[in-house]
């Protein structure tokens, strides 16, 4: 299995391990792991498309930035369908609705991850943590359905390119 798949399995195991008497630290780790599962899915798929030399992909994967990915995902998630029910990026590329869902889940998961990792004022319960892990699983499921779509290629490239300064 790939790293991102292992992370998703791990997130599920952590959230389910003590469902009756959950340990909050474990719930927090599950939420954080669920986010990183989606993050690594997207960087894995992005580099697989962008970098022909397989041995160089991990190096390029390190250049994906959470902050810029978040900004791109907000842009995609905010796209409203046209009268025909299609999501069309301002550049004219048709974006499958599954990508809209993935983008939305990425933003939500990142927000949850930051709260789970740093905000000790918030208390997490099993129900909430389970729903967050399930949202990462939902995103993985959506990816299965849209990964071959050209709009998905465009999305992945945007996730990466947004962090690269443009030549003036």
């Amino acid at each position: 299995m790939h790293f991102h798949q292992d992370l998703l399995v791990l997130a599920r195991q952590m959230v389910d391990r003590n469902a009756a008497q959950p340990i909050e630290a474990e719930l927090r780790r599950a939420i954080s792991t669920a986010y990183y599962a989606l993050f690594h899915l997207l960087t894995h798929e992005g580099t697989a498309r962008i970098v022909a030399a397989a041995h160089l992909r991990s190096r390029v994967a390190r250049t994906f930035e959470h902050k810029f990915m978040n900004a791109v995902c907000k842009e995609f998630a905010a796209m409203q369908p046209n009268p025909a029910g299609q999501h069309v990026h301002p550049s004219g590329v048709l974006i499958p609705s599954g990508v809209i869902t993935i983008a939305s889940e990425f933003v939500t998961l990142q927000d949850s991850r930051l709260s789970a990792d740093y905000d000790t004022a918030i208390t997490w319960d099993h129900f909430e943590a389970e729903a967050i892990v399930a949202s990462a699983e939902l995103a993985f499921g959506e990816w299965q359905a849209v990964q071959a779509d050209p709009g998905s290629d465009f999305f992945l490239v945007e996730l990466w390119c947004r962090g690269i300064p443009k030549r003036s």
Partner: peptide, 29 residues
């Protein structure tokens, strides 16, 4: 739960947009 939350987030985003409220929606269960 996850797909319901995703659907509600979409609806919420549209409602906020329609109401010209410039806030990013997060749904927590």
């Amino acid at each position: 739960l996850a797909s319901t939350a995703a659907g509600l987030t979409r609806q919420l985003r549209k409602r906020l947009t329609d109401a010209r409220i410039n806030r990013w929606p997060y749904v927590r269960l």
